[in-house]
Design a protein around this nucleic acid. Structure first.
Lengths: 137, 137
DNA sequence: ACAAATGATACTTGTATGGTATCATTATAC
DNA sequence: GTATAATGATACCATACAAGTATCATTTGT
């Protein structure tokens, strides 16, 4: 029951790394060195972030990636959605039929409550906020 | 990101169903009819619950299962643990190395907070409490 | 033209979930 | 005491998703 999968995690690190190199175009090779992530896997992740307009990409010699969005506008939930799909704790197993007894629905209510809390906590989290907390603690 | 997998769900239903037949020994065949769960899969689930001392089993003709524990002592978290292992939102991807930058740890704190909340909400949930809420709403 | 980068896409591998199948063992009924 | 109806133990199978690899096409700077 992972909240964050490896590609989301790698994406986060890559974004942070690129954010540090203000305005410089960063090629994959540089990120590989810094983050020690398998190159082809990282490439796949960066390409997707490019397609999703979080990165801007530059082809050709001297090319690479820059941020297309400032870190305070990159939301964790969006990254999770990109790599893992929308968060749903509560997939019902009985799509076809109606719930046979409401016991499960009592449980469902609980789970929904937890899910709501999760969203409340995660919604405001941006890459900027993660980097900021860095300095505090 | 399912909180509850299918076997846990089926286990819950089976427990509720057996709880209804107070003290009667219930064979798998009966549960299959009522719950419409594939027989061999349900059997596997019941056997595990037996091994874990939540059911008592009776072999031979006229055999089947009864509850070994009253419903107000069967905790949802224990069922989840049996079928899915302990809940952990927060598996760190960097077991080997120390965290390269603390940004992830800021995230980890958030996730831990959510996990704590989850436990707070789920810890008191028993099968009895689920059945009880049934009557209310 | 060549080299250095990304774009697109398809493939591979590992693991967990959901489910089957089979044979052994035990207990009851006749 | 044998047939039958149940569970116990175990091994297998199918599918999906996560994690990672590989390849070729395209673009761009020198």
């Amino acid at each position: 029951m992972k909240l964050i999968t490896r590609d989301t995690d790698y994406a986060l690190r890559a974004i942070c790394s690129i954010a540090k190199s203000k305005n410089k175009i960063v090629p994959v090779s540089e990120l590989v060195k810094e983050l020690k992530i398998p190159r082809p896997f990282l490439r796949k992740i960066l390409q997707l972030l490019s397609k999703k307009k979080i990165f801007r990409s530059y082809k050709g010699s001297g090319g690479g990636f820059t941020l297309a969005v400032p870190v305070n506008k990159i939301y964790l939930l969006d990254l999770i959605k990109i790599f893992q799909g929308p968060i749903k704790l509560n997939e019902c197993f009985l799509k076809r039929k109606t719930c046979p007894n409401t016991k499960r629905c009592a449980l469902k209510k609980k789970i929904n409550k937890i899910e709501k809390y999760m969203f409340k906590e995660l919604r405001p989290v941006t890459v900027a906020s993660l980097l900021a907390k860095d300095k505090e603690g």
